[in-house]
Computed example of a mutant assay.
Amino acid sequence: MKTVNLQVRINEDLKQEVSSILKAQGLSYTSMLDALFRQIIKERRIPFAIALPTTPTDKTPTPSTLNNNGTYEQPQTTLKASDTINTYGTSTTNEIEISFDKIDKTGILNIRINPKVKTLTTAILKEMGLTISLLITLISKQIQFSKAIPKSVNKPIACDSMNADFLTDEEIDQLLEMAYIDMEQGNLISAEELFEQLKREGLLL
């Protein structure tokens, strides 16, 4: 199957966390996104809801407090996004701490994708005012929030260890190396046992 490389810039911490979640399910970014793109092409919509995790009402931040006389009093505000905090101006009524944000640590997400799937997905997203980069960030955040792929998103038919079409050359080499180690250590099962296991997991009809 012919594939082309797709590079997307994404927050490195988010990328690593989502990669771990997907790996626990026997998947990778490439296989998950390939399934997502094909679903978008088929349904011509974003097949998952964009939402923040549920927050208890008592923990919901309020921008200001209403006094008894009907005026608003701005609470002490701390903008904390890094370890370096600078305090500007001090008064008897209010003190505001301002923190300078660190620049997000971004990395490159490389995936192999069918060129036709990439072209069609790009065109559909463009009509919606979206880009592939933004879509990947959105689905990554939803996976981070729920610790799983959204239920409305179709999962790949087979896990990455069974489908070389979704793997890079480096990933195939890693799997082969792991297989050689298992062979040397005698961690083997018969073909009959393997087929039964695949049937139980729904990977073989």
Rank of each mutant, 00 (worst) to 15 (best):
M1N: 01
M1A: 04
T3M: 02
T3Q: 09
N5F: 03
L6K: 08
Q7C: 01
Q7D: 08
V8P: 00
R9L: 05
R9Y: 01
S20P: 04
I21S: 02
L22K: 05
K23P: 00
K23V: 02
Q25N: 06
Y29W: 07
Y29G: 01
T30W: 00
S31A: 04
A35L: 02
R38V: 00
I40A: 01
R45I: 02
I46K: 05
A49T: 12
I50E: 05
I50C: 01
P56I: 05
D58K: 09
T60C: 11
P61E: 04
T62A: 14
L66N: 06
N67M: 13
P75A: 04
T78N: 13
T78E: 13
T78A: 14
L79S: 10
K80P: 01
T84G: 01
N86R: 14
N86W: 08
G89S: 14
G89I: 11
S91G: 14
S91W: 01
N94G: 10
I98M: 13
S99R: 09
I103Q: 11
D104G: 07
I108N: 11
L109G: 09
L109K: 11
R112H: 08
I113L: 15
P115V: 03
P115M: 03
V117E: 02
I124E: 14
L125N: 06
M128T: 00
L130D: 09
L130H: 12
T131G: 11
I132P: 08
L134M: 08
Q144G: 03
F145K: 10
S146L: 14
K147F: 06
I149Q: 08
K155Y: 03
K155D: 03
A158P: 01
S161Q: 10
A164I: 12
F166R: 15
T168W: 05
T168H: 08
D169N: 10
E170R: 13
E170Y: 09
D173T: 10
D173F: 06
L176M: 13
A179G: 10
I181Y: 12
I181D: 15
D182V: 05
M183I: 11
Q185R: 15
A191G: 07
E193M: 14
E196R: 12
E201H: 12
L204T: 06
